[in-house]
């Protein structure tokens, strides 16, 4: 009986596709949390736990979109500039007026989606490689934004602060929001035909096309979603800072890619998923948090994160 159970769980792991990677990355996360708790009394307080989750939300939202794009075999370098643009548009137009929250939120999400659709068209129709297409888009968006404002701009109404700082009972609103968002995309990727087509397109575009899948449409949609989610992150940033910073999103393009890769998704596409990305987000945030608590200077965090990226991906190559 016992043997049978063991067999069953192994089978289940294989069924999860990249089971071993998921086990590896969550082991690393748990190890990281245990070690941090042991060396820092401040780390193991409930307040810090909540804090970490709160901090993880922004990176978490962008990384969902980045995961979708990378699964199709692409990548999106424009997300950082879209975050900055979203934050500046939001605070710059709202200027503290609560009645403008809804229209401005819709506007920002639309602008992000349209930029993402632009990426999608450039990649699928003009056949520009994703790296170059989104690099160009990053430059265009960032340049336009700096024409609009060179310094922090506007302020958001107090109601809008609820997005980043609100509390529902003991649970921070952003954490709850993120859980729902994550579950939505998790189901989207695992249970819908479209999710299946994302994996098939990344696993072999020609094969997917010969199976009747409109692969260009699939790729287009993932970029649109990535743009949408980046704009959403921009709104979150505006809510957290209460204003818009034209360079606030800088760095999230590479951080989100690194996070997705640490989570075990293959840069070649077709393999990986959101469970891994979630672990990646938490690892990156926990590392930042513990080093902060220990008073390690910021640049050291870069070095440690760099080592984690290289280490994690080299381990995946080995298990494969």
């Amino acid at each position: 009986m016992k043997l049978k159970e063991k067999k069953f769980s192994l089978d289940k792991l294989i069924r999860m596709g990249r089971g071993r990677e998921t086990v590896a990355i969550y082991s690393l996360l748990i190890a990281l949390i245990v070690v941090s708790s042991l060396i820092s009394p401040d780390f193991r307080t409930p307040r810090n736990g909540v804090n970490i989750l709160r901090q993880a939300v922004l990176l978490g939202i962008v990384s969902i979109g980045q995961t979708l794009v990378i699964l199709t075999g692409g990548l999106d370098l424009s997300v950082g500039s879209i975050i900055s643009l979203g934050a500046c548009l939001a605070s710059g137009i709202m200027l503290g007026r609560a009645e403008l929250i809804l229209p401005v939120v819709l506007l920002v999400l639309m602008v992000g989606t349209v930029i993402g659709m632009g990426n999608g068209l450039i990649v699928t129709r003009l056949k520009v490689p994703p790296f170059i297409a989104t690099l160009g888009m990053m430059s265009i968006v960032q340049g336009s934004l700096l024409l609009y404002t060179k310094r922090a701009i506007g302020w958001v109404p107090t109601t809008f602060l609820f997005f980043a700082d609100g509390q529902i009972g003991p649970v921070p609103f952003p954490v709850l929001f993120y859980v729902l968002l994550f579950l939505t995309f998790f189901v989207f990727l695992k249970k819908t035909t479209f999710g299946r087509y994302i994996y098939a397109t990344g696993g072999g575009e020609e094969i997917a096309r010969l199976s009747g899948i409109r692969t260009r449409f699939v790729v287009f949609i993932t970029y649109a979603l990535s743009g949408f989610l980046a704009a959403l992150s921009g709104l979150f940033l505006a809510s957290r800072l209460a204003m818009g910073d034209p360079l606030g999103g800088q760095g999230y393009e590479l951080n989100s890619i690194a996070t997705v890769l640490v989570g075990g998704t293959s840069l070649a596409g077709g393999r990986g998923g959101l469970m891994g990305t979630l672990a990646g987000v938490l690892i990156m945030t926990v590392v930042g948090n513990i080093l902060n608590l220990m008073g390690v200077p910021g640049f050291w965090q870069w070095i440690v994160k760099g080592l984690i990226i290289i280490g994690a991906v080299s381990v995946y190559r080995r298990i494969d």
């Binding site: 994996y199 098939a200 009747g212």
Partner: peptide, 21 residues
């Protein structure tokens, strides 16, 4: 390998790829 099967996907997912709709 190049045109028929997505090697990294399961038997099930490969079989139903054209008929998933």
């Amino acid at each position: 390998k190049k045109e028929g099967l997505v090697l990294g996907l399961s038997v099930k997912k490969n079989i139903t790829l054209p008929s998933l709709d």
